[in-house]
Write a protein that binds this DNA or RNA. Structure first.
Lengths: 247, 247
DNA sequence: CACAGGAATATGTATAGACATATTGATACC
DNA sequence: GGTATCAATATGTCTATACATATTCCTGTG
């Protein structure tokens, strides 16, 4: 698989309005190193004479750059180029069903286990919650053109997501259902490598001892745990791609 | 007027300014699901009467939400809550030396090979460049508290980064040096899993056949290749963490 | 010299008004 | 029915102005 990412925010070819030109001009100077980190950008009133516009227009360009974290504005002191965010990238992990069908391959889904139960100690540890409550535990397998693509092992906190009780996870994969029904605010991914044990190897139709890529994802809404998922992909044929595109 | 009284109460609440209050209010409705994806949020002139402010103020709040990709604004049609985003996260891969020292562990670095040479076919393929030129090829090992942490295999395009010729990679790891001297605009990470071959296992002091996490990173500045690096981490002990924080 | 306090200044927020521009929806025409 | 046209409308950009606020700089005082 190739989880390719495009931050096409800047690809939108819109009309070059004045404030956008100013923004791009400053962005260019920062990214080419002409204005290195820490450099003080000309004051707003200098920029307004340079570009021949009002201060509000300059300010709008600077505000967007500040929101994008390229610059830092300090009252009385001025505006400064921030240290670039080195080595960070936007990693996008799309819904598996959507990803496979987008590639023009046939998506296959098999529910292996789906149990609704009171949370046991292991469940609570995985979800990071203290008090007892109900959970849904799901195991399933995704495939593309009949070939196993990933196996998924998921816990959903039923108290945080009561609507999940009405979903039919025999038909719709839980990730897809959650994506369309439950808004979230925070997610943490933990990516690691393992070798397939016999059970995993059988489920993914690979050799025992073959490498696998593992993604553990924990999802919250406003500090409330929603779901925890453990995904295992065959590791040699599958790659996660994260791409950062600036300017 | 009663309107200005209302606004004063609004501002007295804490510190947030009016446009920020508006932004947070709309954000809350979206994240709680009160305004689901696709929902048309009130027109700007409705919002300005609701909040008792000018259209510019409302527009500023909406502009920031649009920049953060929470809403979509369409001329004549109105403003709409965007469909749920794909799961996306900021993947941060810090400088290895800084990462280890930040954990309070002692950082160790060993340069294994460092060669300056004309690019051969394999080098050009890896860097994705056509014309011949000079490169630096570096192999090194990072360790934490004396335990191997990662092995690194890097190519630097000397034509794109001539300053690299003056760096002493026997002392400073190339990643750290590049981080502090070379601005970049694009990077692509490819993450996969492998099993350690004998050579890798020996370098990382793990068993042959143990899982490893591999990161291949390609870095550009304005479409110009700067460097390509191949990093291998022991896969069971090391985890990459990517975290998304929505506002 | 240390320090309190005030003046200077750059950004931050907000206003009303003006015109531009894209898109929708209705209307008229073939 | 299909299509060209046009007016209505919501967002997009920009101006000039005003005052708020945080910070720095300077100055007077002990």
């Amino acid at each position: 698989m190739s989880l390719s990412v495009d931050r096409d925010k800047f690809q939108a070819a819109d009309k070059p309005t004045l404030y956008k030109q100013i923004r791009l001009d400053i962005e260019r100077r920062i990214l080419t190193g002409e204005w290195p980190p820490g450099h003080r950008i000309p004051f707003e009133h200098e920029l307004m004479t340079r570009y021949g516009c009002s201060r509000m227009t300059v300010s709008k360009a600077l505000s967007e750059l500040a929101q994008a974290d390229l610059i830092e504005r300090r009252r009385r002191a001025g505006t400064f180029v921030r240290r670039p965010k080195f080595l960070s990238a936007v990693l996008t992990i799309p819904d598996i069903r959507a990803e496979i069908t987008a590639l023009g391959r046939s998506y296959g889904y098999q529910l292996i286990r789906c149990a609704r139960r009171a949370a046991n100690d292991a469940d609570r540890a995985r979800l990071g919650v203290r008090k007892t409550g109900k959970v849904i535990a799901i195991s399933c397998r995704h495939s593309a053109d009949g070939v196993p693509f990933a196996i998924e092992d998921r816990l959903i906190d039923l108290d945080a997501v009561p609507e999940a009780a009405t979903a039919d996870f025999a038909i719709e994969p839980p990730g897809t259902w959650l994506l369309h029904h439950v808004p979230w605010t925070e997610a943490e991914h933990s990516i690691s490598a393992i070798v397939a044990d016999d059970q995993t190897a059988a489920a993914l139709d690979i050799a025992s001892g073959a490498p696998c890529l593992v993604i553990d994802r924990h999802t919250w809404r406003s500090a409330r745990t929603l779901t925890a998922v453990h995904l295992v992909y065959p590791g040699e044929s599958h790659k996660l791609v994260a791409r950062f595109k600036g300017g």
